[in-house]
Design a binder for these strands. Structure first.
Lengths: 222, 222, 222, 222
DNA sequence: CATTAATCGAGACGGTACGTCTAGTCTTCAG
DNA sequence: CTGAAGACTAGACGTACCGTCTCGATTAATG
């Protein structure tokens, strides 16, 4: 077992060390085109077959690539799938206008729900989390590729709310992070549970209700 | 494809015992001992190997049972695993004494967290939910064996809180169910997300914070 | 590596222990039909592709059998090929009539040459011998399945010649075996070398010449 | 398929040296040192791993050379191996002194046996012959590099024996060649069969016996 | 001396076969 | 009919080599 344990396909091909001189070693460089073809094929196969019926041989065939090329870049199915859905999470954004905290939360919920409505995300998300329960490396990859990109929104929303004066700045920065984590787990967990466990629609009324619940919970009454 | 699609192992063997009228069919009866041995072996294998490395052949060998016996009772790995962890969810209970709504919620959170700390539950829960994303029969089995047993607590808690006068009875019964679903998805989702995605401890301070958040969110300020 | 190291497919299925009671253990018995289908498919593939282009996957497909069935019976390609060509060597026989030693030898040479003219034997024989150079188990299998069946003819021919008075019985039985080995290596080696290395035809004139050479060499002049 | 089908590594680089007319083309010339390193690495790998476990990648690594360099010079494994063992066959010589025909034959047998005792020759010889069964180009290479160098001794021995008066000059030159072929196939075949199939030692007593057999067979009694 | 063109190392590439593993079914005999 | 045992078909697994290719870097003879 001399598995590839790199952080991802782009970690290698970034080929620029810290100093930016980008001293490529020797040999034929890896094909950038192959990376994109593989990730696209993975998303297509996920949507069509679901995570557990997806095979790396099939992905390779769809991408017009040899299996070895795939294994050279990713250690296994879970890591590949994480990277394949990762960039979809880049598109999550707070609403542009100067709304309220509650409106921001509602918007984020709906955006996340829209993502979970995509079949490739739906089938991939729980599966990779399940695989990660006893695989720290995979857990780190998920955190970096998916979780942190969601969490960013919570932090931005908090900052905006403070600017607007809706929330008071926290006394202790550690307390602030603790609270942000709570909000994040609550919002993300609730949406995922509603969508994938309860299998009920995450629509505007439900999003409003959840946003209200959390917003009111945040502001302790006197 | 002549898969066994029964709801569980006892669905078959229960017939003829409860009311005594149903004449038992001919031939050798199924061994009750085998059922428990298989479920126990499944839990052990889950804890040791994790869901994805668990194989039915291995379970059969651990239980001292032939693979045939296993497939006669369960259609596949996911269904077996659901049944194996199901009865652990029976033990969830509201605290006996006459506490507050907030205390009840906190206690439920901690009980659920204790369950998620068991390795067999940790690895099984997300995995079977993931498998169920495109398998309605499995989803139904999960709901009956796991989800409903958790949800029951939310409904009991709501009833208690009304008795105590902490919450007003809902005007519309549909509204009540809608709210209960929201609370359930929020609590369960937050705990799971905290434990399995964020990988942070679900301890008493965090449980208190979440209970507070939800309790305050429930009681709209004037 | 827990490879099957049995002496052959029939060693198992003979399923009669030394006492002849044939106490078959349990479980589904191996299919006899599969054995024959696999060996026939192997011969066909050998003739068509040659030893080095033959793959076990292809043999399994031709035989209408899963790869595992094949690997359950034979440890590898070489052993399978040995068994596949072995029974062709059973058909070697001395000529029936009461000819001379020289005529017997010539006949044997031509029969062996006819065997070597078959493409499956042609491609298999050298290949398995080559593979056997550092594999004692394979060497033993070849000896039992192929070499001993050829050698038998030499011993029979020697016995006949003594009956006819063409050769004198050897004083020392060890000397007799030594001589038989020499004759065998000489005849078999010469035919193989002519056919596969020199690539010249092993026809009647050549067989006569070799038979004469050996017969004269055997009877030292006074 | 633009395979290199040249007769050998020196066939290319030799051009322009023998007669000096052929102007070497421009560009960097091939490294002579690489040739020898590759052949030596091949012999080492053969002795260590055997023909079938030898890989060109491994040979390249042992020789400190890129795979490309190897494929530029040889079309494949078999051709490389033939060349690697070829020069060992150059060392075969008739004994210097004026012995007898029988003594010459015995000496040749023992020299050939000594060669076959080397593990790299042992594993390579049968393997390349097996590969050559349906590859005319490889067969030609083997004939030129190995077979003809052995056959030369038979022709020299025949000539010597005639000079000594042990054998009469053949009436027909075609008959002479035919007889030489027979002797060659018999001697070479017997030694190879003894060493690689029967796996018995080719020692002086056996060599004497074979030499006697052939010598007596050659001189028909009155 | 600069140009030029084939060489060199390194290593990624598309393929193919490997031998193993698991899924789920089927076939035997024993109770 | 159930049970253990184990052979069966089917197909994915991850690895190993194959022979080719694309790089940047050498290295002579030629211009």
């Amino acid at each position: 077992m001399s598995r590839n344990t790199s952080a991802g396909p782009f970690a290698d091909s970034a080929d620029g060390t810290a100093d930016g001189t980008a001293a490529r070693r020797t040999g034929r460089p890896r094909s950038r085109a192959a990376d994109e073809a593989i990730l696209a094929a993975t998303r297509a196969a996920l949507a069509e077959l679901g995570f557990s019926r997806l095979t790396l041989g099939d992905v390779a065939a769809r991408a017009g690539v040899a299996k070895t090329t795939l294994y050279r870049r990713w250690p296994g199915k879970s890591e590949l799938v994480v990277d394949a859905v990762a960039d979809l999470f880049d598109k999550l954004e707070l609403p542009p206008g100067g709304g309220s905290l509650e409106a921001d939360i509602e918007e984020v919920i709906l955006q996340f729900a829209a993502l979970l409505a995509r079949p490739e995300v739906r089938t991939a998300l729980m599966a990779v989390v399940a695989e990660a329960t006893d695989d720290e490396a995979l857990r780190a990859r998920i955190r970096q590729a998916i979780v942190d990109r969601q969490k960013r929104l919570v932090l931005q929303g908090r900052a905006r709310a403070q600017e607007r004066g809706e929330l008071t700045p926290p006394a202790d920065p550690r307390q602030a992070e603790y609270e942000a984590d709570l909000i994040f787990d609550t919002l993300a967990g609730a949406v995922v549970h509603r969508a994938l466990v309860s299998c009920e629609p995450v629509d505007t009324p439900w999003a409003t209700a959840l946003a209200t619940l959390v917003t009111q919970g945040l502001r302790p009454r006197p």
